[in-house]
Design a protein around this nucleic acid. Structure first.
Length: 409
RNA sequence: CGGGAAGUAGCUCAGCUUGGUAGAGCGCUUGGUUUGGGACCAAGAUGCCGCGGGUUCAAAUCCUGUCUUCCCGACCA
């Protein structure tokens, strides 16, 4: 990809509205643009990373045997009346009417729609269990959107719903998803904790949150310093320094960003919405449900919070927008393009083919945050280039063959 | 929704107190000189001063209404 064509409108000055590092990087680096409060454009660089995050989620979730679907964002009032949430959800639900004054909402989540889908097709224990998921834009009219993509009114979310004949079967899938979530967050190189949590107004009886550790997080994690005990402070009154309830270690607090949540919903929705099946014993029973979410756009910020220093990102391997950033300086563009052609056979390369000064190119490259950088400069005529590894902070003068060897390591 | 702050060029902001008809830096265009960490010189282009109403001979400036954005709080998959 040529940088002159890959719309990356970096800024010199950071817009004053950005309060946290990840938000400033996203704005300054030309990743996102604000359209309204809590509503953003994803520019090419951010969207490329988003798609990588989505695909990691898909790969790991597919291993649980769940299948991808796409449901409508626009949902009819009737379904929400059935579940009782047309009233309960309150002002956070984005409501609107069509030309015939029929009421709709923009989906903040999809329990209603998917339960209605499944109840019409699944009426025997023989068809259970199944898991269906989607990655889609969600709408929530937040009281107070903030921090860029951290709490938006429109955001990208992965949501999975599983359907079972009993609690035992739900437990099996729940555990599979829990493991999948761990693999996802590990592939994203995130430091996180799994904590017990309340289940909010979604209903149901058990839930765990996946919290990415970070000082600017909006939630407080209450955890033991020497066991896996961890709870959300919302449902816990332990103080720092208290002994842990499991007898191991003492209580500490940490701030976290909630990037994922898994629920055992039970039969809350299936009862309200009459999603039943005939069991082996010929009894009609409500389908037992689980639901699971991951904030895709929020993950983008969480990754930045943990993988940037001094407001310069270095994207983790699995989500880096490009494998290599080739930067020709002076009149070395032609030579740079040769290097680009060659390496592009094996790597996803970005070449800065713009007619800019070195300083401008380096500043922009720092904002783009590709770990490996090849500077085609003074010694280019001898076939020697500067190979930089931003993560290690190393710079080496190497020939192309040596660079290829370095990359293989 | 309560409290605070702010809306002036693409971006960051000055001008408002004390009304006189629009500014700076960066960016952009053209020419030249530069060329390894946001270059320099010269010449340009760019504004419903958020929007409406009022006061006034005259409003970016004063009064008023309204919209928008940000911060703090309460709410929350």
């Amino acid at each position: 990809m040529k940088q002159s064509k890959f719309f990356i409108p970096t800024l010199r000055e950071t817009p004053k509205d950005a309060q946290i590092a990840s938000h400033r990087i996203l704005l300054k680096g030309g990743y996102i643009k604000q359209v309204a409060a809590g509503i953003y454009d994803y520019l090419p660089l951010a969207y490329k990373i988003i798609k990588k995050i989505e695909n990691i989620v898909r790969e790991e979730i597919n291993k649980t045997e769940a299948v991808e679907v796409l449901m409508p964002a626009l949902q009819p009032k009737d379904l929400w009346v059935e579940s009782g949430r047309w009233e309960k959800y309150g002002k956070e639900l984005m409501r609107l009417e069509d030309r015939n004054e029929r009421s709709f909402c923009l989906g903040p989540t999809h329990e209603e729609v998917i339960t209605a889908m499944v109840r019409d097709y699944v009426n025997s224990y023989k068809k259970l269990s199944i898991g269906l998921y989607q990655i889609q834009t969600k709408f929530r009219d937040e009281f107070r959107p903030r921090f860029g993509l951290m709490r938006g009114r429109e955001f990208l979310m992965f949501d999975l719903y599983t359907f079972h004949k009993d609690e035992e079967d739900l437990d099996v899938w729940y555990k599979k998803v829990r493991e999948a979530y761990k693999r996802i967050l590990e592939r994203l190189s995130l430091d996180y904790r799994i904590i017990g949590a309340g289940s909010g107004n979604i209903g149901g009886n058990a839930s765990e949150e996946f919290m990415v550790l970070c000082d600017i997080g909006e939630d407080t994690i209450v955890y033991s310093d020497s066991s896996s005990f961890a709870l959300n402070q919302e449902i816990c009154d332990l103080k720092e320094g208290d002994p842990s309830p499991d007898g191991k270690g003492v209580i500490k607090y940490a701030k976290g960003i909630e990037v994922g949540h898994i629920f055992k919903l039970g039969t809350t929705y299936s009862e309200l919405m009459k999603a039943t099946f005939i069991d082996q014993d010929q009894q009609t029973k409500p389908i037992v449900m689980g639901c699971y979410g991951i904030g895709i756009s929020r993950l983008l910020m969480a990754i930045l919070e943990q993988h940037s220093t001094d407001e310069k990102p270095i994207w983790p391997k699995e989500v880096t927008p490009f494998d290599l950033h080739i930067i020709p300086l002076g009149d070395n563009l032609e030579q740079g393009l040769k290097v680009y052609e060659k390496l592009s056979k094996e790597y996803d390369c970005l070449i800065d083919d713009r007619d800019e000064r070195a300083g401008v190119k380096f500043q922009d490259a720092d904002l783009i945050g590709v770990r490996y950088r090849i500077v085609v400069g003074r010694k280019a005529s001898e076939g020697i280039y500067e190979f930089q590894d931003l993560l290690k902070g190393e710079k080496k003068e190497l020939k192309l063959a040596e660079i290829e060897k370095e990359l293989k390591k």
